[in-house]
Design a protein around this nucleic acid. Structure first.
Lengths: 127, 127
DNA sequence: ACATTTCGTTTACATGCGTAATCGATGTCT
DNA sequence: AGACATCGATTACGCATGTAAACGAAATGT
């Protein structure tokens, strides 16, 4: 583990999520979204943006008097690291045991199952 | 959700893992395993056991001069909370998008696919 | 030019966490 | 009984995190 210089915390990932959805964005817009979605105060968002900058997870490009923020690490990479981490910690690194777990806990409704089945078919076609 | 008063941290979950594998166990045995697997010192394991006690995640039953520790929360519940948390945060709470992600990242080998297929069949039989 | 607004930067602070060392009570050996 | 060993409890400490306020520089309006 310990790939990136610094890990992205839960709160920080909310900021990343905003930037992944649409960027570049000025702090003001990021704040507007997170104030609404998370109820965070301005200072909080400022801090998180700065911590992400320090961690090298985002970049800030000067645009007149303000900065425009954009992600430097890809959402896919982040999601991948998080997912793989969970699988490694809890399911021996494999996906099937996780699915099995959900099944046992009756957290799979027929639609989920159908969707998974479609996915598998598509995968088979692809190879 | 949010049953337990306090969350179990990463380090603490290693202790839980030991107790889930086999319990009850005296601190000495827990230490022996974690010293080997994680390289942790005695004090570290003692602290973690105590924090877990305070959190109500484990219990300690007096056995002569020592205590025998055993988990109070089930491994299944823990795994479930962690997994669901990840799905909620990253995949809209659903399993299929996660599988899709793994597929896109080419993290599914044919064996995984076959295993998933078997699982789905079993699930269909069951319902 | 000066007051005001607007941003980003710096500082703050309580918790939680990882990682231990030390203390203290109790049991054991001689 | 007194010294020693054991084991849990208490205290420690730096870094991360969530949450923010205060500060300072730059742009704008008047």
């Amino acid at each position: 583990m310990e790939t990136s210089p610094h890990r992205i915390s839960a709160a920080e990932s909310e900021v990343m999520k905003v930037l992944w959805t649409d960027s570049p964005k000025p702090a003001e817009e990021v704040l507007a979204i997170l104030a609404k979605e998370q109820g965070w105060a301005e200072g909080t968002v400022k801090t998180l943006l700065n911590r992400l900058l320090k961690k090298g997870a985002i970049a800030a490009d000067k645009d007149g008097r303000r900065f425009l923020y954009r992600p430097l690490i890809g959402r896919e990479d982040y999601v991948d690291a998080e997912s793989q981490g969970l699988l490694d910690r809890l399911f021996d690194g494999r996906l099937a045991p996780l699915v099995s777990h959900f099944s046992k806990r009756e957290k799979l409704n027929p639609e989920d199952v159908a969707e998974l089945r479609r996915l598998l078919e598509k995968i088979d076609d692809g190879q």
